[in-house]
């Protein structure tokens, strides 16, 4: 997957770059508006991550140019402005998703995967990890070809883990992904723990070899090796 990251904050750029590299993605960066316009004008990407507030211009214009030139490219706006106007205008201009800063890197990865799946495979792409098979479009999970009934929340959780396989996921990243703004009310009760336990139980009951590892004091990891 080839991704362009348009972001002016160097440290954030470095983190995103490193994290996406770790996912095996090819990432290029643009530090300001002219560079972003040049690169999006010359090359084709599977996905572009655009910050709205850029030196020498607005990320919204980058979105506009991308939409006319490369309708197939997935666009995610990553903005610190958090203003509703920007979100609405960005999506109107043709951005596919909007992620407000500060965001969890695993969340970005999950959104990127979902976006590319939607754009490239029309959403019809199975994810197969040994005996486990996921069909995100239908929210379907199979173990050894046998259907596992998961709740919507459990499916979201599993997909999030799989999208970030072999990475350590913090409890707060997972909680925020599953519960959104309600996450703050959740962690004190360690609801995530029981949520995770139920998911693992349902999958292992169907003969799945549990690949979800608890990382002590931090969170969880879905391992494939």
């Amino acid at each position: 997957m080839k991704v362009l990251l348009v972001e002016d904050e160097p440290e954030l750029r470095r983190s995103v770059l490193a994290y996406l590299h770790g996912e095996g993605m090819v990432v290029e960066v643009a530090r300001d508006f002219p560079e972003a316009m040049d690169k999006t004008g010359m090359f084709t990407y599977d996905a572009v991550l655009v910050d709205i507030t850029l030196p020498k211009g607005s990320g919204l214009d980058v979105v506009r140019q991308l939409r006319t030139k490369n309708p197939g490219t997935g666009i995610i706006i990553i903005s610190a402005k958090g203003s509703l106007d920007d979100k609405v205008r960005g999506l109107e201009l043709g951005a596919d998703d909007y992620l407000a800063k500060p965001f969890h890197l695993p969340e970005l990865v999950a959104r990127l995967h979902a976006l590319v799946r939607r754009k490239t495979f029309n959403g019809r792409q199975d994810i197969v990890l040994d005996e486990l098979r996921l069909v995100p479009e239908d929210k379907l999970v199979e173990v050894h070809g046998e259907r596992v009934e998961l709740t919507g929340m459990q499916f979201d959780l599993l997909l999030f883990l799989v999208a970030n396989k072999d990475r350590v996921l913090s409890r707060s990243a997972i909680a925020e992904h599953v519960w959104g703004d309600h996450a703050e009310a959740m962690d004190e009760h360690d609801l995530l723990y029981s949520h995770m336990k139920n998911l693992r139980k349902k999958l292992t009951e169907h003969g799945w070899q549990d690949r979800i590892k608890t990382v002590y004091g931090i969170g969880y990891r879905f391992t494939t090796t």
Binding site: E11, S15, Y19, P102, H104
Partner: peptide, 16 residues
């Protein structure tokens, strides 16, 4: 929010 995003990114990296 930008510094918060930087903090978040570094934390997400750190736990790896």
């Amino acid at each position: 929010q930008t510094p918060l995003a930087v903090m978040q990114g570094k934390l997400d990296e750190l736990i790896q």
